[in-house]
Amino acid sequence: MAQEHSHDHPHDHDHDHPVLKYSDDSEHDYDETARYPLMAEAMRQLLIEKGVVDADRVRDLVEFMDSRSEAIGAQIIAKAWTDADYKKRLLEDGTKAVEEFDIPMLGAELIVVENTPDVHNMIVCTLCSCYPRTILGLPPDWYKSKSYRSRAVIEPRAVLKEFGTDVAADTAVRVHDSNADMRYLVMPMQPEGTEDWSADQLADLITRDCMIGVTRPSVPETVAAE
């Protein structure tokens, strides 16, 4: 191979092919962004004109989704950390356990996966952007990017590292591709030194990214020092 490939100039094979990072997206996604909102609006107007849905129903759904945020997920995980019985119910039947918080799964089922010293879980939807929206709100853009969706299954440890999450070699990385009717939520490990905290205090540590499984909760240094 070296024989056929002799050049008299040095070159770098990487320079023309930047590696996509999870925070990027391909140009293909960007050059049509204006088109999709237009198509969505045209579809909304047509459905209303034809009497398939009415404007109030559309507004109700939009308002419902706007009312969802990671704070709901944080509340659920904090409850599980402080209530062993609830944690058991949540891991056994996530759908039923979140009903106790009046959270509907809208036809999907919830599976809660627990991080332990031996197992680190992370969530992706390689086909589109399936996500526990009623628990975490709308997914972040990077979750929908082609690079995250492909790299999370091909090289999860490299992706985790880019999020600042180093997973030890003897800890298994379990990727969950939510490609059908299940939705997934990661229960992170409770940080050391927070055993006496209340559920409300703990909830502040539990971020969206922790519950997708790309980061771990940590105690802010200012709090730890108190």
């Binding site: 299954v153 090289e155 999860p156 440890r157 070699a169 003897d170 800890t171 298994a172 990385v173 379990r174 990727v175 969950h176 591709d177 939510s178 490609n179 059908a180 009717d181 299940m182």
Partner: peptide, 11 residues
């Protein structure tokens, strides 16, 4: 190139 224990789950 990760660990032998690493897995991916699908439905």
């Amino acid at each position: 190139d990760g660990s032998d224990q690493d897995t991916v789950d699908l439905e």
